[in-house]
Amino acid sequence: MNISVLGCGRWGSCIAWYLDKIGNNVISCGLADAPEFIQLSTTHKNDYLTFPESIEVTSDLAKAVNHAEVIVISISSQHLRSYMQSIAQNNLDGKTIVLCMKGVEAATGQRLSQVVGDFVDEEKTPIAVWVGPGHPQDYVKGIPNCMVIDSKNHEIKEKLVNSFSSSLIRFYVGTDLIGSEIGAAAKNVIGIAAGMLDGFGYASLKGALMARGTREIARLIKALGGNEMSAYGLCHLGDYEATLFSKWSHNRSYGENYVKGIKFEKLAEGVMTSKALCKLGKENNVELPIVESVYSVLFDNVDPKDALGKLFMRSVKKEF
């Protein structure tokens, strides 16, 4: 299969490496002036992996789009709309777009598949999402994991699951696009909260954070029209180990560094996602205490220890 992976960051490069490894004809496409693209295009490797010669690296977006039967996009979620303006200048009919990124558009509260849907006719250009746990640092060592592919188009998600599955990644067919997207995005916000707990030496509270965080996001998914059980699947709870505990997690590291007063230089999608989820919570009358606490720290300058303290000392209520 001809596949183009748009985005040369940590996850985008891993996807390109993986899809080539299982036998596809892969182009990796990035922005010409981006440091990660420059590194890959000049050395064919980055801090995580080495590309085989079979992967072509280019900054020619039109070439990458025209090459592909399947276009995988893995970039910062808040830049998706502007990037789609460029992508949509090409003929996308008959192609499938797969979003391998986790976030919600902060300005609109739209899920990422909805953002892409503003630019394409989904009857001609189906949209799917690829979510779930895993880190490039583990995959390149041959450590397996499980992930989910979801879409409104049942035929497309079945085809992608069958085409992309291997002994390294076992894919499941998603059954709730709303839940898959919201759950995947929200786990990054919970990850920031977990990092803050680590920074204060309160790691033992992460069990409570996991239990309450999953319930909170389940309520939001249900209010948005999805299946609340999706929060307990691979898209959200199943991704907690990789996000709330792993040393590789950008969002956990961001939260830990934040409370220690250390600047974190890498992308933490949960920052802007906290803003988007607060917007959705208010619009749908859903209480999101963990999300709101993270938002209050990052955007309202609330002291993180006070915010977390209030979070775990809320009024007595039944657990379920």
Rank of each mutant, 00 (worst) to 15 (best):
E155G: 04
F264T: 15
P289Y: 03
M272G: 00
N301F: 06
S86L: 08
S74L: 06
C8I: 00
I97Y: 11
R111G: 04
V5H: 01
Y295K: 12
S59F: 05
K310W: 02
S296C: 07
C29P: 00
G142F: 04
G103D: 11
G9Q: 14
Y48I: 04
V129N: 01
A242H: 15
G201T: 12
G238E: 06
L40T: 02
K102L: 14
N25R: 03
G174K: 11
V316Y: 10
V26A: 00
A106Q: 10
R212M: 03
D20M: 00
G117Y: 07
I27C: 02
K159V: 00
M147G: 04
L177W: 11
L31F: 15
L40H: 05
S82G: 07
C100W: 01
H79L: 11
K102A: 15
V173T: 15
L49M: 15
M210F: 08
M1A: 06
K45M: 06
D138W: 09
S167Q: 12
V286Y: 13
Q78Y: 14
S166I: 03
V286E: 14
E269C: 13
D60R: 02
C278S: 10
A276G: 09
G201K: 09
G226V: 03
C278Y: 04
E69W: 06
M147F: 01
V297Q: 06
V173E: 08
Y295G: 11
T42S: 15
G117P: 12
L168S: 07
H154A: 02
R215W: 02
A185D: 13
R81G: 07
E216C: 08
N188S: 06
S167T: 06
G270P: 03
F37A: 10
S76P: 09
K275A: 13
Q110K: 15
R219N: 14
V70D: 00
S249A: 08
K124E: 14
F171C: 01
I3F: 00
L92I: 12
A184S: 15
I169A: 10
L267W: 11
K222N: 12
G238K: 02
W248A: 09
S246R: 15
V294S: 12
V115T: 13
